[in-house]
Simulated scan of single mutants.
Amino acid sequence: MPRQQQSAARPVRRRSYDQFCATARALDAVGDRWTLLIVRELLAGPRRYTDLHADLPGVSTDVLASRLRDMEQNGLAVRRRLPPPGAASVYELTGRGRGLMPVLAALAEWGAPELAERRPTDAVRAHWFALPLLRALDGLSHAGTVEVRLDEGRFHVRAGDVESGSPVYGDGPAVRADVCIALDAEVCLELAHGGLSLAEAVGGGRVEVSGEGPLATELRGG
């Protein structure tokens, strides 16, 4: 049998660190380049392949397709067909995939100081600031949807208790926001790494709060 045919018949072995260690097992599933950034995108809810590709500048179509297949095999994501009139396929996280949210939040907090200067080659999307900002909103006594307005665009986050399985943030304006806040990326990053509290930012006029209701009142310090 030709060598090429022998190679084709050989089963593909999944890459593994082959270590009986929880960290190694976790990295077996999410340690490949781009996987955690795909999780970041899917934390906003179901996304089409084309939307994922648009919001992951730099990833090739082959690599994105490969990572999504791996995530399905590892039980992190599923692909499903939307009912009419949508009739499109979307990817969404499983419960196990959503369990990576604290991991992404911790990485965002750890990496925030590295964003002191934006490089000329850096791409940016407004919703990439969602996970860092969630840290500043943690601990609010009132729950609700917060629409965030940056120069880079808009996104929305869910403050307070989030129903199990619900997205913790979303791209674009909220369908129905309980409060809107306007700030710039610099303030958002200061909030992310703890150099500034939300109360200090609002009190100093660096965050503008608009809206009525208990959540808006709390954010204003009332």
Rank of each mutant, 00 (worst) to 15 (best):
V146T: 08
L198R: 07
A88L: 10
P167N: 05
R135T: 14
A22P: 04
D51P: 00
S16E: 13
G31T: 10
A216M: 02
R14P: 03
G144A: 05
G204T: 07
G45D: 07
V148H: 00
A174Q: 10
Q73P: 01
A106V: 09
V157Q: 00
V39M: 04
L196C: 12
G205D: 09
L76V: 11
L76A: 05
F20Y: 12
R220G: 00
G99D: 06
G97N: 01
V157I: 10
L140P: 01
S164W: 04
R158C: 09
A106N: 06
R154A: 10
E72Y: 03
G203F: 06
A22H: 14
S66M: 11
L42E: 07
V187W: 00
D161W: 07
V78T: 09
V209N: 07
V78Y: 09
D178N: 11
E41Q: 15
R119G: 10
V207D: 01
D18G: 05
G213I: 01
S60H: 05
A182W: 05
G58L: 02
L36Q: 06
D51Y: 07
V175E: 09
A24T: 12
L140T: 07
R80A: 13
R10P: 00
I38T: 11
L196W: 02
V12N: 13
C21N: 15
V30K: 03
Q6A: 15
M101L: 12
P132A: 07
R79G: 02
A199P: 06
E109G: 08
A177H: 08
T217A: 15
A199I: 09
H127Q: 14
T35I: 14
L93R: 04
A185H: 05
C21R: 14
D18E: 13
R40S: 11
L219V: 10
T145F: 00
R176G: 09
S166N: 07
D184F: 01
G86Y: 11
D171V: 13
Y49E: 12
E218H: 04
A182T: 15
A26M: 13
E72I: 02
G203I: 07
A185F: 00
T50Q: 13
P120H: 12
